[in-house]
Write a protein that binds this DNA or RNA. Sequence first.
RNA 1: GUGGAUGUAGCUCAGUUGGUUAGAGCGUCUGGUUGUGGCCCAGAAGGCCGGGAGUUCAAGUCUCCUCAUUCACCCCA
Length: 421
Amino acid sequence: MNEIQSLRGTVDILPPQSALWNEVERKVREHFERYGYENIRTPIIEQSELFMRSIGEDTDIVEKEMYTFTDRKGRSITLRPEGTACVVRAAMQHELLGQKIRKFYYMGPMFRYERPQAGRQRQFHQLGVEMFGTYSPLADAETISMMVRLFEMLGLKGVSVNINTLGDKESLEKYRSVLRERARANFDKFCPDCQRRLERNVLRLLDCKVPTCQEIFKNDLPSIKDCLSDEAKKHYETVLRELDAMGISYVEKPQLVRGLDYYTHTIFEVTHNSLGSQDALGGGGRYNDLVESMGGAPTGAVGFAIGEERLMIALSAIRGEEENVCSTDLFMVSMDEEAIGENLVLADALRTLGISVSLLPEKASVKSQFRQANASQSPYVLIRGGDERAKGVWNLKDMKNSTQKEVTKEEILAFFKEIKK
RNA sequence: GUGGAUGUAGCUCAGUUGGUUAGAGCGUCUGGUUGUGGCCCAGAAGGCCGGGAGUUCAAGUCUCCUCAUUCACCCCA
């Protein structure tokens, strides 16, 4: 066993798993770009203050989950725990938010100091999007549909969409105080967690899993809907109507809340049943006040993030592991020392044509070379040795039918050029 | 941060009431007569039994600590 190992809650993504990651990321990029989103890449480290101000000082993320350290000049630096705050910061810094609607997507590692668990790591990866410059409920609907279609495009079945609204800032503040007031009356009946939540983050009462708490919520506590302004109500209804029109099924969850403070109006979450207790594949919503609270002009915005590890778990559950092996087009066998150099020259020419070629740069037995060719799943093998050198040819073996014939260099190049098409 | 389960070969796991030199399957490597893969056969490599302390004549096995993995809570993606 190695003395130095990866840190707790971090993992190495190895072949053949990494091939699945590449494939998913490629498809996701194409998907986002189909909706007019542009890639943005922000630093992994930021000033700590960015997250404290955007995510909220009272959230668990900021309170106890951030990787924060001071650098050599004594500045407080934090490894990003999520992407939205970073994108907002970058967009504001470079004056990208003006009259026009701007849409960005990102993918990369995020960091939160938590106890690892199924679908939860300290370094994890997110695929995220952010749209700035509109308050339209149709943008919410488009964003949700983009997320749902992404899972469909990847062949992932069995996802469910949960949706709720928090209303605008005024609706939400009103709801919070009403909720707190009514909950205090029932204080003794709540579980200890909820008693703590009541003062810290009263919305969290709603999604408590303890049955007795849910009972109280159902019977004695007001719903957010009772506090929505007419405008907020209309916004939400328009989102739902548009989703219906697109044929996207969803479940309204009045008790759905999110752990980041910046959300307003529509919030949503996609879950999958293969994930165990951390069943959220991704989530997001509208955050109309964030840009302004960070010192920018009022800017409507909506976005989501998908947990890449969880996506992989869900995808692996529905497809076989074996599909991920990476194969080469051609394997080259060298019978003697001289042939290695000759093969390398030919391989070089073939690779220029876009053919993937494997060969061993050291002398090895023919048997072991063929064993390796087999393992690499190459459909063809080229053999070079004394016999071939005398005739100025290579032997081309079709591994599937075990047939073999002598071919010249020109024929080889032509043959693989044809295959490439 | 809290609670439960689990740490033996690269992987999946055996290992008796503590008792000689720690095992299997898969994988890897090398062979099975001149230069041909898969299947088959033979052989080899590969282990500080997670780490440390203790009990004992004797610890993979018992006790404690620690680290890690894992599941759940919390929270979130």
